[in-house]
Design a protein around this nucleic acid. Structure first.
Lengths: 146, 146
DNA sequence: ACAATAAAAGACAACAGCGTCTTTTATTAT
DNA sequence: ATAATAAAAGACGCTGTTGTCTTTTATTGT
């Protein structure tokens, strides 16, 4: 895996909260988890983390739930990966060496650099808004079921 | 990580055994592990696996050790990844969905497909011989220390 | 045959990622 | 104030990866 399962869940959660039909309301974790087919309490902690980092919001009690504010559509995949996984994926030596840099590279360093850049570009250029659009147009789905 | 640490160790081990100076002799696990800075018994099991799969060879007893045969230089990174990790990295849904295909794609499916292809191309085109050449020319190193 | 050597094999421990379940805390409505 | 609600937080278990250590087995040289 390039990103952790946790990070994928986070992205799907944020996209779900950003859908046009959800953007104006608060949604409970039970509904989100059900809709996305993700273990409820696990997703709960993941979203809690995003709340702590200020990316999304939540309120407790009746009619509480998770919700987003407008600017989130401009948020990139990279932003979320940074928060959840950190950027170690894009830095670690491909061959598992402790240290690996352009000064003292492993035999795969240069070759893998272009892969890394491709991934990085994708992370940086793809926004939550882009993913929302795919779901709303019916081209893509979040749950993998429908 | 794209490939497991185990797989990176395997590649480094095979490249080390394939160096010009090592190609004609058998080398003990103690020396290999020392040279590559990899936990000895762990690397031992990894190389044992490669022996079982017929990629490299070994003999026990005095003057025993691990060794390769000529054709290995044409072996690709993909071959080793297949043996050690399998190809799940190149198949799993980026966002962690159980099912994800071009028929029912996640919002990242198409975008990530090009990354996947880039990684796959690298795996398929890069051979052990290529990596050996990098090390022998002094451009790259296996241990990360020297 | 016997001792020395080195891979093979087994048992086990540490750790992280993933997941479940229970308790606590904050908010809302009555 | 009180009860109901839902997120927050805590404790815990499972699994796979990584790593260590010990025992067994096969080979070699004397």
């Amino acid at each position: 895996m390039v990103i952790s399962k946790t990070c994928g869940y986070a992205i799907r959660g944020v996209v779900f909260l950003s859908l046009d039909q959800n953007r104006t309301k608060k949604i409970g974790i039970v509904e989100i988890a059900e809709e996305l087919q993700i273990p409820q309490h696990f997703l709960s902690k993941i979203l809690q983390n995003l709340v702590n980092k200020g990316l999304i919001y939540s309120v407790r009690g009746p009619h509480g739930g998770f919700f987003t504010k407008e600017p989130i559509l401009k948020t990139t995949i990279l932003d979320i990966v940074k928060i959840v996984d950190g950027l170690s994926v894009l830095k670690k030596c491909f061959l598992g060496r402790e240290e690996c840099s352009s000064e003292n590279p492993c035999p795969m360093h240069d070759e893998f650099e272009s892969c890394r850049e491709g991934i990085f570009d994708t992370f940086r250029n793809k926004t939550i808004g882009d993913l929302v659009q795919g779901v709303e147009s019916g081209e893509t789905t979040l749950s993998g079921i429908a």
